[in-house]
């Protein structure tokens, strides 16, 4: 299975993905990106993070950008 990397960032901060995830195809990579978004937005502590400014950049093993998934508005 190909490996995909899910870098999460806004305009000033970045949380690069060290490990990557093995996914069957781009559809599964897209599902994993959405799961990571939900996980990040479901933390135990209150935040003042502007999630609308954040996104997941999904990259292949050569670290080439494949697609981007934006974080949704928290109340969407």
């Amino acid at each position: 299975m190909p490996r995909y990397f899910f870098d999460i960032m806004d305009s000033t901060q970045s949380v690069p993905d060290e490990a990557g995830l093995d996914c069957r195809d781009l559809d599964e990579a897209h599902r994993q990106a959405r799961t990571l978004i939900v996980d990040a937005m479901t933390g135990p502590e209150a935040t003042r993070i502007d999630w609308c400014a954040w996104r997941v950049e999904v990259r292949d093993e050569a670290r080439s950008l494949l697609f981007t998934v934006p974080f949704p508005h928290p109340h969407a």
Binding site: V15, A19, D22, L36, T47, R48, I49
Partner: peptide
């Protein structure tokens, strides 16, 4: 500042995915 920096939340999500991968494969 965890109220402004989502690093731990993001890494926690990756940690969950990594654990799922370990127990599956």
């Amino acid at each position: 500042d965890p109220s402004l920096d989502p690093s731990v939340r993001v890494e926690a999500g990756r940690l969950r995915r990594a654990l799922e991968d370990v127990y599956a494969r």
